[in-house]
Amino acid sequence: MSKPAPRTEHIQVAATLRRLREDAGATREDAAKLLGCSVSKISDLEVGRSKPKPVELERLLDHYGVQGRDHEELVEFARTSRKRRPNSPYTAAVIPADIRRAVDLQEQALSSVFYSSELIPGMLQTRPYAEAILGWEDANRPDEAAKLLDLRMGRAEVFTRTDRPPLSYWCILGEAALRSGVGGQAVMREQLAHLIEVNSTMDNVVLQVLPLGSGVHSFLGITLTWHRFPAPAPDMLILDSYGRSIIRDSPAEVARGAHHLDLTKAKALGRDESTTFLRRVHRELK
């Protein structure tokens, strides 16, 4: 009998373990030697095919130099993720507050589809645009904002990574996101120029604009991302609202969300038309 697909929480732990190992400069062989196991087991732990025992997780975190709050939060999250979730198509898991782990999740994906009516996604933001967004959030102290900014700027590396296939990314943006005035006119001109360049030169990134006046669609007022992962990990939808992100990972929910994303794509301008639209808005900001 085949093993059940990994749960969303296990993928989050797995993605974070891989990132921590790489940050520590350790190899899978190093981790396998530490635990006295095969390299294939470490690979399974880092893609969510198997779950680390508490003692194994503690030893890996100690070896990777993870201490304090980060250590405690990951151990607690891994512990609670081992509990059985109710079998319901509406089950949702909340991504931990640690934003870094949410980024780890993105880095594990093979492809992602993103929709937002007003906000340009972090992976496509320029530094001045990101600074304006992070600076507006009063909850971010200067030291925290600087770390978040560096983290956000590094997210685009998934588009050109060489250790595995680059992320395939499809982004649908509402026209309001292009006219939001974040950071002022100069910042928006630079941001739009970046979007034009990406949409014109990167084969694995597609940007569509959904003009104002396109009518009713399924995601009015919602920011949504659909992630697809290497088998056997399940696809998932992430709905973002202020201060938290909600995961929908049941097959029925994901299939319905993916269907409505396809309908929204059909309403949006095509790739070439979107680039032309971006250039027009860019000229208007002179």
Rank of each mutant, 00 (worst) to 15 (best):
M1V: 14
A5R: 12
R7V: 13
E9P: 05
Q12N: 00
V13G: 10
T16K: 04
L17Y: 06
R18P: 01
D23C: 05
E29I: 03
L34N: 06
G36Y: 05
D44W: 13
K51E: 15
P54D: 14
D62L: 00
Y64E: 02
V66I: 13
G68M: 00
R69V: 11
D70S: 10
E73S: 15
E76A: 15
R82Q: 12
R85K: 13
N87R: 11
T91R: 04
A92E: 10
P96F: 06
P96C: 07
R100G: 15
R101C: 10
A102P: 00
L105S: 02
E107Q: 11
Q108I: 00
A109D: 05
L110W: 04
L110M: 09
E118T: 14
G122V: 07
R127G: 03
R127W: 02
P128T: 04
A130P: 04
A132K: 00
L134R: 07
G135P: 01
P142G: 08
E144S: 07
E144T: 11
L149D: 08
D150E: 15
L151S: 07
R152G: 00
G154C: 03
F159E: 08
T162N: 10
P166G: 09
L167I: 09
Y169P: 03
W170R: 05
L173A: 03
E175D: 13
E175G: 10
A177N: 07
V182L: 07
G184L: 04
V187R: 03
R189W: 05
R189A: 13
H194G: 11
N199F: 00
N204S: 13
V206H: 13
V206T: 15
L210N: 10
P211E: 10
L212R: 12
S214M: 09
S214A: 15
G215T: 09
G215Q: 05
V216I: 12
F219W: 12
F219V: 10
P232K: 07
A233D: 02
L237T: 02
S241Q: 07
I246A: 09
S250I: 06
S250Q: 07
P251R: 01
A252F: 10
A252Y: 05
A252H: 10
E253W: 09
G257C: 08
K265L: 08
A266M: 00
K267L: 14
G270A: 05
R271P: 14
E273A: 12
T275N: 06
T276P: 01
F277G: 06
R283G: 13
